[in-house]
């Protein structure tokens, strides 16, 4: 077990270092720099700005300085905020809202995804199957932003306005992240795609399991239908779901640009886009490493979950 943990930590550090290196040099290779603006800075001004931010040094030196500081947890200041906020503060300010939005969506997506998948598999070829899969295809093919705008306009704006005379207040605010009502629509909009993926995966995985010999055995020994579904089918169908849950959770918990900006959620999703647009180098590095570390951690959880679901998989091996 200790050997397992030590190896994983070593791999994690190695992966993050590689990620940092590749990102750093790709970012430097982008045309422009953080202070390239529509109006050119006079040379005297540009010199002061570059000196203040260390951009006057050779790229390799900048890289080494970055690694040295990052190794002790100093990820620098955001250029965009002109040195008033560290990258850790910028990410720390956005992560809680993103994580809450993501967690709520994930729970919703897992619950309804599994439910739809199971119903579809058990009623394979029947109406319930067709209906569940229609929803799934819709979820995969309709982009999140279309769904978000539609819900915002028809539910938060039109429907809430129509209900106002009855309720005395607007049921759903158009944007915001404070009341429970304000969280309802963004969570649904974000969960729809993942729910669709999970339900399709669950359906095919269940269908594989249903035809296995041990299910026949279970039925033959007289177990009730529910016992067969819960103890034999469900558990054995879960492995592929758990596999996709790792990356899915990492993506959904660390912020999504579209849903957050449409619903005005003060999360960190926008950072991935704006930091690249603004060439806010330190934030590009920070968000990439944060996401990378999170993904690695989620995959570690997946590995541990494998062992719990299927005792034949042993971590140390």
């Amino acid at each position: 077990m200790y050997k397992f943990i030590a190896t994983r930590i070593l791999y994690t550090v190695l992966a993050l270092w590689l990620l940092a290196t590749v990102t750093f040099f790709m970012m430097q290779a982008m045309p422009g720099d953080p202070f390239l603006k529509p109006k050119a800075l006079p040379e005297s001004v540009a010199k002061n700005v570059r000196a203040k931010w260390g951009l006057d040094k050779p790229v390799v030196i900048q890289y080494l300085v970055y690694l040295k500081n990052a190794a002790v947890g100093d990820f620098g200041y955001s250029y965009y905020y002109k040195g008033s906020r560290t990258v850790a503060q910028v990410i720390g300010a956005g992560f809680p809202a993103s994580a809450e939005l993501g967690l709520r969506s994930l729970v919703l997506a897992i619950f309804f995804g599994l439910l739809l998948g199971i119903i579809a598999a058990l009623n394979s070829g029947k109406f319930a199957d067709a209906f569940a899969m229609f929803l799934a295809i819709l979820g995969v093919s309709v982009p999140a932003f279309v769904l978000a705008y539609l819900m915002q306009y028809f539910i938060a704006f039109k429907f809430s306005a129509a209900l106002k005379p009855l309720l005395g207040f607007r049921l759903f605010p158009i944007t915001g992240w404070k009341s429970e009502a304000s969280k309802f629509l963004p969570v649904i909009a974000l969960s729809f795609g993942s729910m669709a993926t999970i339900s399709r995966l669950m359906r095919s995985s269940m269908l594989d399991v249903i035809t296995s010999d041990y299910i026949k055995t279970a039925k033959a020994k007289g177990l009730s239908r529910n016992a067969v579904i819960l103890h034999h089918m469900l558990r054995n169908s879960l492995l592929p779901i758990v596999t996709v849950l790792g990356p899915m959770a990492a993506a959904i918990l660390t912020g999504t640009f579209v849903i957050e900006s449409i619903f005005g959620v003060p999360g960190m999703g926008r950072l991935y886009i704006t930091s690249v647009q603004n060439q806010d180098y330190t934030v590009i590095m920070g968000t990439t490493l944060f996401y990378g570390a999170f993904l690695i951690f989620m995959n570690l959880l997946v590995d541990i979950a494998y062992g719990l679901i299927d005792p034949r998989i042993r971590l140390a091996d």
């Binding site: 705008y149 915002q152 306009y153 938060a156 704006f157 809430s160 306005a161 607007r170 605010p173 158009i174 944007t175 900006s261 449409i262 619903f263 005005g264 926008r270």
Partner: peptide, 18 residues
């Protein structure tokens, strides 16, 4: 002064009286 980045969302808020 709100900081809604999405132009369409901000416009819908105007229409809704926010």
């Amino acid at each position: 002064m709100d900081m809604i980045t999405d132009t369409q969302a901000a416009f819908t808020k105007f229409l809704a009286g926010d």
